[in-house]
Simulated scan of single mutants.
Amino acid sequence: MSSVPFVGTVYEATHVRLRNAGDAWNSHDLTDVFYLACASAYADVVVCEKKAGDYLTRAWRGRNGGARLVTSLAAAVASLEARVAGSVRTY
């Protein structure tokens, strides 16, 4: 599944989510798993709720890659600024 990181991330996040029997499903949880798993597999930074971030963090354990997961817009801005500062070339 390493050649298709989205599939592996959906599998792992869903598996972790289903193992937590005490956590009630909300109407948007499955949508979060699919779209945020895709984003976490191919983007640099993903902004998500704490609950989804926790499941995605667990899904990426033991695997290479994955986006930086942040749970606030301020953290997203800081992460993006750091990425931009690191990629600026001086001639």
Results as ranks from 00 to 15, higher is better:
M1N: 06
M1Y: 06
M1C: 07
S2M: 07
S3L: 12
V4L: 14
P5L: 06
P5S: 08
F6E: 02
F6Y: 03
F6M: 06
V7Y: 11
G8H: 10
T9D: 09
V10S: 03
Y11Q: 15
Y11S: 14
E12D: 14
E12A: 06
E12R: 08
A13D: 05
A13F: 07
T14F: 08
V16P: 05
V16E: 15
R17H: 13
L18Y: 14
R19S: 11
R19C: 12
N20W: 05
A21M: 11
G22A: 13
G22R: 11
D23L: 06
W25V: 07
W25H: 05
N26E: 08
N26P: 02
N26L: 05
H28S: 12
T31G: 06
T31F: 10
D32G: 02
V33H: 00
V33L: 09
V33S: 01
F34A: 06
Y35K: 07
Y35F: 15
L36R: 00
L36T: 00
L36C: 04
A37W: 03
C38H: 07
C38W: 02
C38G: 05
C38Q: 05
A39I: 00
A39F: 07
S40F: 11
S40R: 07
S40Q: 08
A41R: 00
Y42Q: 10
A43Q: 03
A43R: 01
A43Y: 01
A43H: 01
D44A: 15
V45W: 09
V46I: 15
V46N: 02
V46Q: 01
V47I: 09
V47T: 05
E49A: 07
K50M: 02
K50A: 10
K50C: 10
K50P: 07
K51D: 02
A52W: 01
D54S: 06
Y55H: 04
Y55P: 04
L56N: 01
T57N: 10
T57E: 10
R58W: 04
A59T: 10
A59L: 04
W60G: 02
R61N: 13
G62L: 08
G62T: 11
R63A: 07
R63Q: 09
N64Q: 14
G65R: 09
G66K: 04
G66Y: 03
G66T: 04
A67Q: 05
A67H: 04
L69T: 00
V70S: 09
T71C: 15
S72H: 01
L73F: 08
L73C: 10
L73P: 03
A74P: 01
A74Q: 11
A74C: 05
A75R: 04
A75P: 05
A76S: 07
V77S: 12
V77H: 15
A78P: 08
S79K: 02
L80F: 08
E81G: 09
V84W: 10
A85D: 12
G86A: 15
S87W: 11
V88P: 01
V88S: 06
R89S: 15
R89T: 12
Y91F: 11
Y91N: 06
Y91W: 15
